[in-house]
Design a binder for these strands. Structure first.
Lengths: 248, 248
DNA sequence: CGGCCCATTGAAAAATTTCAAAGCTTGTGG
DNA sequence: CCACAAGCTTTGAAATTTTTCAATGGGCCG
C-alpha cells in the first residue's frame, strides 16, 4: 500500500484513509520506463495524461525565443505533473528526464471518476497542487532576491528536504543528478557563473562532485548559508477544517 | 449575472452554465472595502477565507530574512487568493492592497458545499488555479532569463492583457497603480535599476508616468521589445475533454 | 582513438547594486 | 494660500556582480 512515492508525500495529509489510497493505486497501473534525457512532454503539445513520477528525476522548463531555457522546477519521486493539463489546449512547458525514470500515467477523465469515488482523494491532490504552488513561490523568491551562492545553497536544501519527504533516505537523499548547466538554468544565471558560485561550496566542504552529479556533504552549513527556512515544505498540523469537510 | 469581474475571467471557460454562475454568486455575498496600502493577509497567519478581488489591485509577496521583499504576483479584479489556504496551517505569503479595493470572502467549507451543488464550478475554479500556475511559471521565466528592460515591458504586457480579460477596457486597462519600487520588488532588481530601466521606455514614448502610476502608451512596441507571447494567458479553444466530464 | 559533454579558468565587457544626494509632487495643517 | 512632511523619482559615481568570449583539461563511450 505504501510502496509508491506519492503515498509517502501524502503521509502528511493525514485524513486520507486506506480506501482512498486504494482508489489512488487504481489510477497508477500504467507504468512506463524512460531513459535519461528523454522528453516526457513537449512545449506546445496537448497534454493527454496526468503523470506521477515513480522513480527518478525530471525537470519542467520553458524555452525562450533566443533559445535560452528556464527550469521551473524539478520533479522528484511522488511528484505529479499535468494535473491542470487537460484544462488547456496546449502545454506552456516541457518536461525532460534527468535520469532514467518510471512514471505512471492516467487520463484526466479517470481521475475525475476516482474523485467521485473518493472526494478525500480529490482534496489530497489539491493539497499537492497547493504544495507545488508554494514551491513555485519560493523559486520566484530565490531567483528574484537572493545572491548567486545563496540561491544555489537554498535549492540544494529544498531538494534534500523533498527527497526525504518522498521517503528517500540516506545517501540517496544527498545525491542530485544535476549538471552545472542545469543548475544555471534553474537559478537564472550563466553556466560560468554557476561554476564560480559552486566552487566555493566545494572548497569549504559543503558539497562535492561525484559522477556527473552533486553530493551534499554539510546540510547544516548550507542551510545557514542560504538562511533556509523549510516551513514552506513542512506541514506539521493536519488541516482540521479540511478534514471536517469529509468526515466519513 | 455578469457584473462581477470573476465572471468575466471565466468567460473563456465556456462550459459553465447559468446555474453554475448563480452558485458562484451565492458565494460572493460578503463584500468588504479596504483602503490603499492595507494588509489583506499577513505572512504566517492562518488563512480563514478565500478572497475574490472585485475591484482594485493588490499584491502577493514574501519577505526575506534581510527585510527584502519579493512580489510573487499582482492580484487584479476577478482574481482569487487563498484557494489552497485552508489546506495549510499558515500562509507563506502576505497580501497588501495597491489601491483601495473591494473583495468578497467566503470560508473554504462553503466553497466545498458549492462544489457539491455544481461540480462544473469546481472545475472552473481549478481552471483558474491552473491559469495562476501558468502565470507563476512565466514570472519565474521573466525574472530568470530576461534582461531588465525586457522584464519590465513583459510585465506591462501581462498586466494589460489581464486587465482586458477581466473586462476592464479602454484607458483603465492601460493605467497601473505601481511605483518603481513595487516594480523593482516584482522584477527582482533594485529600485534604482528599475528607474534606469524605466526611463528609456518613457524616452521612447512606450509608457509614461501619470499620478503615482504608470500609463501604457504603445503596447505594440512593448510587446515587440519584450518578445511577448500571450499564449500563456489565452485559451482559444474550449477544453473539450473537461466539458465531457460534466455533460450536465 | 576521436568525439562529446561537462567542468574550469582568465580576462574584458556589461549589467546591476549600493550609497548619497537632490528634485518633484501631493496632501495636510496652519 | 503657503510651508512642510512624506513618498516617489532621478542622478552621479564607485563598487560589485554577472555575462560573454575563448580556450583548456578530464572523463566516458563507441
Amino acid at each position: 500500500m505504501d510502496d509508491k512515492a506519492i503515498h509517502r508525500l501524502l503521509r502528511k495529509f493525514s485524513c486520507l484513509q486506506n480506501g482512498d489510497r486504494r482508489t489512488l493505486d487504481a489510477l497508477l497501473t500504467s507504468s512506463r520506463a524512460m531513459p535519461v534525457r528523454a522528453t516526457l512532454l513537449r512545449e506546445g503539445d496537448r497534454v493527454e495524461n496526468i503523470h506521477v513520477i515513480e522513480t527518478g528525476w525530471a525537470m519542467r522548463y520553458k524555452t525562450l525565443p533566443d533559445g535560452g531555457r528556464q527550469i521551473l522546477n524539478f520533479l522528484l519521486p511522488g511528484d505529479i505533473f499535468g494535473l491542470f493539463g487537460s484544462l488547456f489546449e496546449h502545454s506552456e512547458f516541457g518536461v525532460e528526464t534527468l535520469t532514467a525514470l518510471q512514471t505512471s500515467t492516467f487520463p484526466f477523465a479517470q481521475m475525475l471518476e476516482a474523485f467521485h469515488e473518493s472526494p478525500r482523494l480529490a482534496l489530497a491532490l489539491t493539497w499537492l497542487a497547493g504544495q507545488d504552488e508554494r514551491q513555485l513561490d519560493e523559486q520566484i523568491t530565490r531567483i528574484g532576491r537572493r545572491s548567486a551562492g545563496e540561491r544555489m545553497a537554498h535549492l540544494f536544501m529544498e531538494l534534500h528536504h523533498r527527497l526525504s519527504d518522498a521517503g528517500i533516505g540516506g545517501d540517496a537523499a544527498r545525491h542530485f543528478p544535476l549538471t552545472q548547466s542545469v543548475l544555471a538554468d534553474s537559478l537564472g544565471m550563466s553556466h560560468v557563473h554557476a561554476n564560480r558560485s559552486f566552487r566555493p561550496l566545494v572548497r569549504n566542504g559543503l558539497v562535492a562532485l561525484h559522477n556527473n552529479g552533486i553530493v551534499l556533504l554539510d546540510p547544516a552549513a548550507l542551510a545557514e548559508l542560504a538562511e533556509f527556512d523549510a516551513s514552506y515544505l513542512e506541514e506539521v498540523e493536519v488541516p482540521v477544517k479540511a478534514q471536517r469537510a469529509f468526515p466519513d
